[in-house]
C-alpha cells in the first residue's frame, strides 16, 4: 500500500499567526517526491529552480528544491494527509 510516509519524513506546524505547515520530504526520496508533485500540480512560478509556487485544486503551496514544502490554509492533519496522498500518488 503506498503511503505518504514513504516520502514524508516530518510535518512541522509553524510558529506565527499564519499557521503554515512545513512538509519535509525524506532525503533520499525528495527528488522523486518533488518530481511527482510538479507533475500533478500547476506551477504558477519558479525562481532559480529553487522555489516552485504551485496550485492544486483550491490549495496553494510552495515547494523548495531542498526537499521542503510550505502549505497554507490547511484545516487539519487529515486534510494535509489527503492532499499529500493525491499529490504523491
Amino acid at each position: 500500500m503506498p503511503a505518504v510516509d514513504d516520502y514524508v519524513a516530518r510535518i512541522e506546524g509553524t510558529c506565527g499567526k499564519e499557521k503554515d505547515v512545513i512538509v519535509i520530504f525524506k532525503y533520499g526520496k525528495k527528488n522523486e517526491a518533488i518530481a511527482r508533485i510538479l507533475k500533478k500540480a500547476k506551477t504558477k512560478k519558479s525562481i532559480s529552480g529553487i522555489i516552485f509556487e504551485m496550485t492544486f485544486k483550491n490549495f496553494s503551496f510552495r515547494v523548495y528544491s531542498s526537499g521542503k514544502a510550505i502549505f497554507r490554509s490547511i484545516k487539519d492533519k487529515g486534510e494535509l494527509q489527503a492532499l499529500l496522498f493525491e499529490l504523491l500518488f
Binding site: 509553524t14 510558529c15 506565527g16 499567526k17 499564519e18 503554515d20 512545513i22 529553487i50 522555489i51 510552495r62 523548495y64 528544491s65 531542498s66 521542503k68 510550505i70
Partner: peptide, 23 residues
C-alpha cells in the same frame, strides 16, 4: 512574503535563520 518562506528559501543556500514569533 511569509517569514517561513524566507527562512525556507535561505535554507536552500545553507543559511539558518529563525522564523515565527520567537516565543
Amino acid at each position: 512574503l511569509g517569514s517561513h518562506d524566507i527562512a525556507l528559501f535561505l535554507d536552500n543556500y545553507g543559511v539558518m535563520v529563525r522564523s515565527g514569533f520567537h516565543c
